[in-house]
């Protein structure tokens, strides 16, 4: 009994932190731009496969390849903002259709270049052993990823609370009109938010790829977690997303170890729908990023 309890606790932490890391960028985009970024899943893919491209195909040093992959994903974020979001920002249907198309195009291009049989593998493992925590044997790499997730959230919170840009983004997330009124170039802040938000998914996928093998369609499953967490949290509020991530982590830990791992996603989806039918705005009440 205690074993199950400690297993659930440890995995609540691990899953919750991972999901939070996956959702961090999505929450920021939902909160600051007020856009449901349906191409978010592409960010995972571009960083992972970009690293592979620069490393294997272009023959660069591995660290440099990672760096360039982040540059690439930032450029992608800017292009999506400038040529998809900006022109369609008032036309929600078009915007969503365009974003999902972008995601699918990225996915198909990657699937064409690196189909699953290519066996893309990134040597990003920091710890190869499993670590015993209580009764749980957790892959050390997942623990590392969990801690990095939390570290990223802390860094972003400091950014939102302690820096000028962060404060401006928070204000934009509450009231875009007031921003225009006080002379804030919201266009540039939106673009900045897009770049800021494109870093966490890349970090997460690089860290978990040794554990969860890469394939060209992995963007979807990671994106699903990001959506679940962000929607349950209140679509663009970090406090809400933090709560939501650990609630879903808890559900997955319980269902995964006590019931049936194949029921994890379904159960959390049902819970999210139930919560939303009672609280349509999600867990957080505030309409602001923090």
């Amino acid at each position: 009994m205690f074993d199950v309890l400690s297993l659930v606790l440890v995995y609540t932490f691990v899953f919750g932190s991972l999901y939070l890391g996956m959702a961090l960028g999505f929450t920021i985009i939902s909160g600051v731009l007020r856009i449901f970024h349906l191409a978010y899943g592409a960010l995972f893919l571009i960083t992972a496969y970009g690293t592979w491209f620069f490393w294997k195909d272009a023959g660069m040093q591995f660290e440099l390849a990672i760096l360039l992959a982040f540059v690439l994903v930032a450029i992608f974020a800017i292009i999506v903002y400038r040529f998809v979001m900006k022109p369609f920002i008032e036309l929600e249907d078009y915007l969503l259709a365009a974003l999902i198309s972008v995601f699918i195009i990225v996915e198909e291009v990657i699937n064409y270049l690196y189909p699953e049989v290519v066996g893309v593998y990134l040597p990003t493992a920091i710890v190869k052993e499993t670590v015993k925590v209580g009764a749980a044997n957790v892959p050390g790499q997942l623990l590392i990823t969990a801690f990095v997730s939390i570290a990223m959230v802390v860094i972003y919170l400091i950014f939102f609370v302690k820096t000028k840009q962060g404060l401006i983004m928070r204000a934009i997330s509450q009231d875009i009109f007031a921003s225009k009124l006080v002379g804030v170039n919201f266009d540039r802040m939106y673009a900045t938010a897009m770049i800021v938000a494109s870093i966490p998914p890349g970090v997460i996928i690089l860290l978990i790829s040794p554990v969860w093998a890469l394939n060209p369609f992995i963007g979807w499953s990671l994106f699903t977690y990001a959506i679940l967490v962000t929607v349950l949290g209140g679509l663009g509020n970090l406090k809400g997303s933090i709560m939501a991530a650990y609630i879903i982590g808890f559900i997955h830990a319980v269902v995964g170890f006590a019931i049936d791992p194949r029921m994890m996603l379904l159960t959390s989806l049902v819970v999210v729908i139930l919560v939303l039918s009672f609280r349509p705005k999600g867990l957080a009440r505030a309409e602001t990023i923090w």
Binding site: T163, K164, A178, S179, T288
Partner: peptide, 28 residues
């Protein structure tokens, strides 16, 4: 009045200071 209604009075004014031309040059 069109202020940011769920921010404090102070934050509303800080926001304007930051938005202004000199906002770039000064610290928070």
């Amino acid at each position: 009045p069109r202020l940011v209604s769920n921010m404090t009075a102070l934050m509303n004014v800080i926001y304007a200071v930051l938005g202004s031309e000199r906002g770039k040059k000064i610290s928070l």
